[in-house]
Design a protein around this nucleic acid. Structure first.
Length: 432
DNA sequence: AGCCTTTGACCAGCG
DNA sequence: TCGCTGGTCAAAGGC
């Protein structure tokens, strides 16, 4: 419905990105997306609102799951964020300024590596948050995220495998790398946040379009701040929106190189945090999350299907490659937007997700419950197409068969949430 | 024909 | 116990 028009518009408007997606994010987010960048990034614009939102989401996690939930202490820390934030932000900003030569915090995407899809067995559903005002789809509609035919083959476009470089700058996060980086990255992420400001009225479709035309620096300014918060080892949130990326809990956070990719990690308990590679399509807001196993390679195809899917779904949240069936919609109190309820159509798969999308079709929040215990269905399937909205599909992948089910069954808790204008929240699904 | 979305109703949890 | 709220069910209809 709404998604279709937007999607179409977006696609139509889409211009081959002069700057590669990676470049884009790098510019926008900063050179060091690496743990430091993310974590340390100070965010002047960070709004408490988003922050709070993340906190709230954190609570959404399974209470039992420490990984998923921030401890009181953590929360407390978060509570004092405003103070901490300012400090952190200031430091980061300065750093960024020094590095970039101006006052815009930069996020370095290079550290955020997209995991080798084939290798990423532990991918799980993350928590994705997108700030209102900025549609994830739009944001993610960059060549990188979008498997747009126009996107040129490159690691960032997702059409080309990411290469890892020794610097950890590659956007691909390899499990091994993740292990190494997670310590740094997530730890750094804990308290850091970065934000960039976009034009408030920036339309979803216009968003990327402008990005193509605007210099990275300008983009930075234009982007709303992105928040990245890490709730627990299991949960990671990115809030893009008013601004900032912050990790709340001092746990590990991976910032997807493209914001679409997250690497899996293990929490203290040994639970596997999965990095999901999710892509937001501007098309009606589709999210593509990392393809769990073998399918990541097909990402481009899926997205393509996803686009069509969006159209078919009318912006239904999906396109993660899984098939979803909407079984309910409700206006939740306190929420400006209606919440839609989706179930994975795969037999025996109890994964569910809640999606809040704006009237414009922008996904404002996505919450996943459980993790898939099955591989993604072939992209060409109608359902796949229909459901596959990259954006919304931040599904946790059930690499470990035991995980998903137990989670879904035992933990009715919504494991992952996506909320915000542009945020991506990753909750490593604890081995559910 | 099959699958999906829509939507009102129902149910359960909580204060 | 009641009311509120969120989550789910299921019929109807569309593609």
């Amino acid at each position: 419905m709404t998604g279709i028009d937007d999607s179409v518009a977006m696609i139509g408007d889409w211009v081959p990105p002069s700057p590669s997606p990676r470049a884009f994010f790098s510019a926008v987010l900063g050179d060091d997306i690496s743990s430091r960048s993310m974590l340390e990034s100070p965010e002047e614009n960070k709004s408490e609102r988003h922050f709070m939102g993340s906190r709230e989401q954190m609570t959404l996690g399974n209470p039992d799951n420490k990984d998923a939930t921030l401890s009181d202490d953590q929360m407390t820390q978060s509570g004092s964020l405003s103070e901490q934030k300012s400090c952190l932000r200031g430091g980061l900003v300065e750093r960024m300024a020094a590095r970039a030569g101006f006052n815009a915090p930069r996020l370095n995407t290079e550290n955020i590596r997209s995991t080798d899809l084939s290798l990423d067995v532990e991918i799980r559903s993350p928590y994705l948050t997108i700030p209102p005002g900025l549609s994830p789809t739009t944001l993610l509609d960059s060549p990188v995220f979008l498997s747009n035919s126009l996107a040129q083959p490159s690691p960032t476009t997702g059409k080309f495998p990411f290469t890892t470089n020794g610097n950890n700058r590659s956007s691909i996060m390899i499990p091994e790398a993740a292990d190494k980086s997670k310590d740094n990255f997530f730890e750094d992420m804990n308290t850091s946040s970065f934000a960039f400001k976009p034009p408030a009225e920036l339309g979803s479709s216009s968003f990327f379009a402008s990005m193509n035309k605007v210099p990275p620096a300008a983009l930075r300014q234009q982007f709303p701040s992105i928040d990245v918060s890490v709730h627990s080892a299991n949960s990671l949130q990115y809030h893009a929106g008013p601004a900032k990326v912050q990790s709340q809990n001092g746990n590990n956070v991976h910032l997807p190189a493209d914001l679409s990719k997250l690497s899996s990690e293990k929490d203290n308990k040994g639970n596997t945090l999965t990095t999901d590679r999710r892509v937001f399509d501007n098309v009606g807001s589709s999210v593509e999350h990392s393809q769990p196993f073998d399918e990541q390679q097909d990402e481009g195809d899926q997205r393509a299907s996803g686009d069509s899917v969006l159209a078919s779904n009318g912006g239904a949240p999906s396109e993660d490659g899984y098939n979803w069936r909407k079984y309910g919609q409700k206006q939740v109190k306190g929420s400006e937007y209606p919440r839609s309820y989706y179930k994975c159509t795969h037999p025996n798969c109890q994964v569910k997700k809640k999606v809040e999308r704006s009237h414009e079709g922008h996904i404002m929040e996505i919450i996943y419950k459980g993790s898939h215990n099955h591989p993604k269905p072939p992209p060409n399937r109608r359902s796949a197409i229909g459901s596959s909205n990259p954006l919304t599909d931040l599904q946790p992948e059930a690499h470990d068969q035991s995980g998903p089910q137990s989670n879904a069954d035992n933990d009715p808790v919504w494991a992952s949430t996506l909320r915000g204008t542009i945020g991506v929240l990753l909750i490593g699904g604890r081995t559910m």
